[in-house]
């Protein structure tokens, strides 16, 4: 009887899985996952001139076109919300495997708000709710390394295995997103019929926060609340940074990877609101910034500080720079970078 039950269950389970798997492999556009790969568009290009690595802060505040005014220059904004430094490292490694010359003479800018980078040691490979961001860069060898070294739960490790091997598991995120957008679309369509303009509420399709940068008034209010709640948590979590810690940091690994590939890394200070700044002015943080400065000096890694002033109104959700000021900020970053490189345009200012 037990055997009969197991056979029936497996038959049903495997059959369902096979149908789903085949359907996903046939019908779901492969583009979805290839789009998650930051460098998918430039894998076959010649060398890349500039890469900007960082969080969603980098994603919204860097306008790559500012850096590519000169012909033949390619700039990539690799800023990703919910990404990790390990993910960024794997993305670069994956790019180099496809195109070993990609980073020759490339400047890889890395976000360093208030003069300090993310110094994580790479044991946290993925953000809890977004493990799929890592998948485009994984092969069997990396997967094995992840399973061996990652400081992730058993649940997360299983999740990554399933994401790697099963299209249906991967596409589940995508399908749910599409279904959600479809539902939103239907509701908005009927909203236009039933509700007059005056009594229509805030019609932001992704109002129920999913983590993107939203600028409708309610989402901004929520994000501001989150920002204020995050600051004390972050302050509480601060631990003193030692020079030795940097040897095991992902920044160290990225630096090595980039320099060995013929490029160079360069840190850039990103603007932050007064609320977020509080994280960087505690005694521990100040000390960490000092240690970090020492380390970058020892490793000849430049830190570019753009001459850019901002007020809290420039950060609608307190996290991200307003889109309308992004170009101005990127401009000032480019100028600072040129000055640092003794560009002829700015030689007279030296």
């Amino acid at each position: 009887m037990l055997q009969k039950f197991l056979i029936r269950f497996l038959l049903y389970f495997v059959l369902t899985l096979v149908i789903l798997e085949i359907s996903c492999r046939i019908f779901v556009d492969d583009n979805y996952f290839s789009r998650l790969n930051i460098y998918s568009d430039v894998e076959n290009s010649d060398t890349i001139s500039y890469i900007f690595i960082g969080s969603s802060r980098t994603a919204v505040s860097i306008v790559t076109e500012v850096f590519t005014k000169t012909p033949d220059k390619i700039a990539i904004n690799a800023g990703r919300g919910y990404g990790t430094m390990q993910m960024q490292y794997r993305a670069l490694e994956h790019l180099l495997k496809r195109n070993p010359d990609a980073l020759k003479n490339c400047t890889v800018f890395i976000e360093a708000p208030m003069g300090i980078c993310n110094t994580e040691n790479g044991k946290d490979w993925v953000e809890d709710n977004n493990p799929h961001l890592l998948i485009p860069y994984i092969n069997k060898k990396v997967l094995y390394e992840f399973l061996r070294t990652a400081n992730e739960s058993f649940n997360m490790k299983l999740n990554v295995i399933l994401l790697y091997y099963f299209a249906s598991w991967r596409d589940c995120f995508f399908i749910r997103e599409v279904a959600d957008v479809w539902i939103n679309y239907q509701f908005e369509k009927y909203e236009n019929i039933f509700l007059t303009k005056n009594n229509r509420g805030n019609n932001n399709a992704d109002m129920l926060a999913k983590g993107g940068v939203k600028l409708d008034p309610i989402s901004v209010k929520i994000a501001r609340k989150v920002a204020r709640n995050i600051v004390p948590v972050k302050i509480n979590e601060q631990t003193p940074l030692q020079l030795e810690d940097m040897k095991s940091s992902m920044l160290y690994k990225i630096n090595r990877l980039v320099t060995e590939a013929g490029g160079q890394i360069c840190l850039f200070d990103t603007p932050v609101s007064s609320v977020i700044r509080e994280i960087y002015v505690t005694d521990i943080a100040k000390n960490n910034i000092k240690v970090f400065s020492q380390w970058i000096e020892m490793n000849y890694i430049p830190l570019i500080r753009a001459s850019f002033s901002s007020v809290d109104e420039d950060f609608p959700d307190l996290f991200h720079l307003r889109a309308s000021r992004a170009e101005e900020y990127t401009d000032s970053l480019l100028i600072a970078y040129k000055k640092f490189n003794n560009h002829p345009e700015y030689m007279h200012e030296q």
């Binding site: 509701f187 009927y190 909203e191 009594n199 229509r200 509420g201 805030n202 019609n203 399709a205």
Partner: peptide, 11 residues
């Protein structure tokens, strides 16, 4: 104060 609402809440 107002009857402002969105159908999206019914999704």
């Amino acid at each position: 104060k107002s009857m402002s609402f969105s159908l999206i809440y019914f999704k």
